[in-house]
């Protein structure tokens, strides 16, 4: 009897398992296909385009597309006639932005999350109050930046400078200050999501750790740095990763406020302009490929340093 059941049970179970696969993949079918089209295929075609001279014009007229290495020669061969210093300059702007935001937003986010977690009352009030700027659109945000950093004597930034005895500054039209002025507001106020992630990480830490630490020291900051902060490693890693990815793809403020002028051309903006204003798709794809490679290197380094696997971050 027993033997019969066991031998009979196996095929049935196998069939059941297969049924699961059929079910799962039929549910996944459309999303996976769509994703393959718009992510995987797009990704590889960008890679292939980067080795061609494909352009808006050649797509419209259907003229022949040639394979060429020129797009990369433009970037790496200093002696080449079309050597493209602008790209590397734009990369400098993007890097400056990324590091500044990674530092500023994480410090501010951590500070706010810590302070809110210490409150006895009104935690949600302050979370809500500090989170809302992340809901403001790039268009509106850049308009506010233009108001605050206006060139006239009556802008907020110039009023502050004059209050400290300085001369009014042409914030957005001076090479020295343009990048700085579009960075100041995001630097201090772009921390909303990060604050939320830190906050949920802080309150997820069991109270007993803090109680144990209270026996040793009364200083809240000491407890924070010796007990709480090390336990927030995952949140820190996630936030840094988000900062890097968000930072490298920045283009909103540059495009909307200064239109890429006065030394504020970021790499993404340069890609956008090359592709959709000049119509040079192949070239823009080469830039995008390089940018993506850099993002990949940074996330890889960051993984190595933190010694984390994908699963943990997920």
């Amino acid at each position: 009897m027993m033997g019969l059941e066991a031998t009979a049970g196996n095929p049935i179970r196998k069939k059941r398992k297969n049924k699961n696969e059929v079910k799962a993949y039929s549910l996944l079918g459309f999303p996976l296909a769509w994703w393959t089209l718009f992510f995987v295929l797009a990704f590889f075609s960008a890679l292939i385009f980067s080795f061609t001279n494909v352009s808006l014009k050649s797509l419209a007229t259907g003229s022949e597309i040639k394979f060429t290495l020129d797009n990369y020669k433009n970037l790496f061969d200093v002696n080449w006639k079309n050597y493209d210093q602008n790209f590397w300059d734009s990369l400098g702007v993007t890097m400056t932005w990324t590091f500044a935001m990674a530092i500023g937003n994480n410090i501010m986010g951590l500070l706010c999350a810590f302070l809110i977690s210490q409150l006895k009352h009104g935690r949600r009030f302050f979370l809500a109050l500090l989170f809302w700027p992340s809901l403001v659109s790039g268009v509106v945000g850049s308009d506010v930046t233009q108001l605050v950093f206006g060139s006239g004597n009556n802008s907020l930034a110039n009023k502050l400078v004059m209050a400290f005895g300085g001369e009014p500054i042409q914030w957005l039209t001076d090479e020295k200050t343009a990048l700085l002025s579009i960075m100041i507001m995001p630097f201090f106020f772009g921390f909303c999501t990060k604050m939320l992630i830190y906050y949920s990480s802080i309150i997820a830490i069991p109270n007993m750790y803090k109680e144990a630490a209270l026996l040793e020291t009364k200083s809240k900051f000491k407890i924070f740095f010796t007990v709480t902060f090390p336990l927030m490693k995952n949140a820190l890693i996630l936030n840094l990763l988000l900062s890097i990815i968000d930072g490298f793809k920045i283009l909103g403020p540059m495009q909307l406020v200064t239109k890429g002028g006065y030394g504020t051309q970021s790499t993404m903006l340069y890609i956008y302009k090359t592709a959709f204003e000049d119509g040079k798709f192949g070239r823009a794809c080469a830039y995008a490929t390089i940018l993506f490679a850099i993002i990949l290197i940074f996330t890889f380094i960051q993984r190595k340093i933190s010694g984390q696997e994908v699963d943990d971050i997920e």
Partner: peptide, 20 residues
Amino acid sequence: ILLSTMMVPGEVLMIPNYIL
């Protein structure tokens, strides 16, 4: 593989998606 695409900013794929 789905998770790995979280690392790819969508903006990088703007051009192929545009053509598509």
